[in-house]
């Protein structure tokens, strides 16, 4: 069985950021981690070639990249594409997703990619591309290659399904319909009677993940506590210079409000894509209450942090929102902020 492997510029030895714009290229046989992967595959398959590109190539050449990759893949007539492992590297993960999508959608070539569940490419592609679970960092390379070899072998030995490898894969995150032996009303009664009797029962629809976090208390300080304003309402300077997403946000920004008394509609706007923003655009303080904070600052027993923090919650995925929250929290912690007032739509 013929396997083609996709890697980024770093893992084929071209370098780091300086080579991040490198266009897709092909080399015969395995390269870098592909050499070990090829050994582990043994009789199951052979890495016949390696395609690689710089991490920034795909975002910089979005209109032509698919054609270029398609051309390289077509010349190979492989049985399977393996991309990664990309661990938690976001741009590398996105590139793996692009290459696998081209293989599956344009050539009907099966593809498998490997990365950490926290890689931003996971949310985008998990429904369509099988994704093998790895650690966050390259320290898990050995395990990732063993798992990739095992997953690829089980696929190549099957009649075209990934079910035998499912313990190595991330869930697709989708809900598909099927016909149950019993109708819903009977199942509802059966489950209720089990619950009344105290038997353990399984819900048919698990609740979304949420954290139970112990509330923090305000730290005692000698000076007035520093308070930061945060929003998921999509507040940006007029014109949205940093291009914050209006939905499915993957980023956050901080904007200086040092010596700013109030958010003026000429200077700030709200770009949240899920709500009618006319009121908040008329008065951005209705989304982020800076003017009230300034008014109450002298007597309120707090001093205001020099930045406001903004992202967009509209259609946000839980992992992305959690990451954004962690990043803002880390910055606030380092900046010595004691408390947060956040607003949400």
């Amino acid at each position: 069985m013929k396997i083609v492997h996709y890697l980024n510029q770093f893992f084929v030895g071209l370098g780091g950021e300086e080579a991040a714009g490198h266009p897709p290229e092909f080399r015969e046989g395995p390269v870098g981690p592909g050499i070990r992967l090829n050994e582990l595959l043994g009789e199951a398959g052979q890495v016949v070639g390696t395609i690689f590109a710089g991490d920034n190539y795909f975002s910089m050449n979005s209109s032509t990249s698919a054609e270029v990759v398609e051309g390289l893949l077509r010349a190979l007539d492989a049985d399977l594409l393996i991309a990664g492992p990309a661990f938690n590297a976001g741009r590398y993960g996105m590139a793996c997703g692009e290459v696998c999508s081209v293989a599956i959608d344009r050539l009907g070539l099966p593809a498998l990619m490997a990365m950490s569940e926290n890689n931003p490419a996971v949310e985008l592609h998990r429904a369509e591309i099988p994704i093998l679970r790895t650690s966050d960092s390259t320290g898990g390379m050995g395990q990732a290659l063993e798992d990739l070899a095992a997953g690829a072998s089980s696929y190549l030995g099957s009649d075209g399904g990934w079910s035998a490898a499912s313990s190595l894969l991330l869930s697709r995150g989708i809900r598909l319909n099927e016909v149950s032996p019993d109708r819903g009303s009977k199942r509802a009664i059966d489950l209720l009677l089990s619950k009344i009797e105290g038997h353990p029962c399984l819900t048919e629809w698990p609740l979304p993940d949420y954290d139970i976090v112990q509330p923090s208390a305000l730290e005692a300080t000698n000076t007035e506590p520093v308070l930061a304003l945060v929003t998921e309402g999509g507040l940006v300077p007029s014109g949205n210079p940093d291009r914050l997403n209006s939905g499915r946000a993957d980023r956050w920004f901080r904007y200086s409000v040092e010596r700013v008394a109030s958010l003026m509609s000429e200077e700030f706007e709200v770009i949240h894509g899920g709500i009618d923003t006319s009121a908040s655009n008329e008065n951005p303080n209705w989304m982020v209450p800076l003017d009230m904070a300034r008014k109450q600052e002298p007597k309120g027993g707090f001093s205001l942090h020099e930045y406001v923090y903004s992202t967009t919650g509209n259609q946000g995925s839980m992992p992305a929102m959690r990451r954004i929250g962690d990043e803002i929290a880390a910055e606030l912690h380092n900046a010595g902020v004691h408390a947060v007032i956040a607003t949400s739509t």
Partner: peptide, 29 residues
Amino acid sequence: MNQFDKAGIPAVLVTAIPSLAESLGVNRI
């Protein structure tokens, strides 16, 4: 929100849908 509490920074969320925030485990709403 919970990320702030986790980092030891007490946080309050101002929202028009308190019950949703409550179900997500936000402590001060």
